[in-house]
Amino acid sequence: MSTTTQAPETTRTGLLLRVLPVGMYAGRSRALVERSFLVNRRTWLQVVSGFFEPLFFLFGLGFGFGKLIGDVVGPGGETISYVAYVAPALLAASAMNGAVYDATFNLFFKLKYAKLYDAVLATPLGPLDIAIGEITWALIRGALYGTGFLTVMLGMGLLTSPWAVFALPAAILIAFAFGALGMACTTFMRSWHDFDLVQLALVPMFLFSTTFYPITVYPGAVQFAVKCFPLYHAIEVMRALCTGYVDASIVGHLAYFVVMALVGVVVASRRLGKLLLA
């Protein structure tokens, strides 16, 4: 698990170093991760509670919606239970939510009020260390939640294919991409009022990206719009891996997130550099 996450990251930094001006990266983002760890040790309740939210949804949907709706058609055209249909989508959605909230609300607070990064930048660390450090912490947390959720799915017999071992790395990639993009957006925000826009992006995406029902419910034009949402692709990846109906299209979905992550990291660290070193 750790190799899959770290390998792409080092190659990515190599590439980024050529794109970004010098002085932005000291290779010490680990210090930021350690700091986050220390802080979160004190607010462990908040960390632990994040694990339960998707579980509540899973049980609620399983017991409630599942009984209303009965069985549904899975990604391979087979009949599966509603819980098995909705669980991978919830995993994808919680990867998105966790990463975005961390990269927006928390980052904004530290940037604007706690003035944390002003102190960090007085040390050899650069903006890219901050960007990578914060995203890494968000990913570690996301990985913990993902592991917990997958364990519950396994216990409920919802993981039916060996492909499911790739669900966690995929969730981490998805979270990374959302986190990087969220971070980039945060650097453009001026006040708390702009955060309704974050809500306004997340809530419809959560509700309409085939999380709860198949895309065939929508008329053609809407279907096209939904397919543009990143969460739609995340859900496609998760459903395929959890049920084992994997085909070539998964490469396209994953590529979507690699591009999204790259754009996010480049924009975020450039903007952070401008904001903090100005």
Partner: peptide, 9 residues
């Protein structure tokens, strides 16, 4: 989403 979309099922 839930009333109309999910409700359609």
């Amino acid at each position: 989403a839930l009333g109309l979309g999910f409700g359609s099922q």
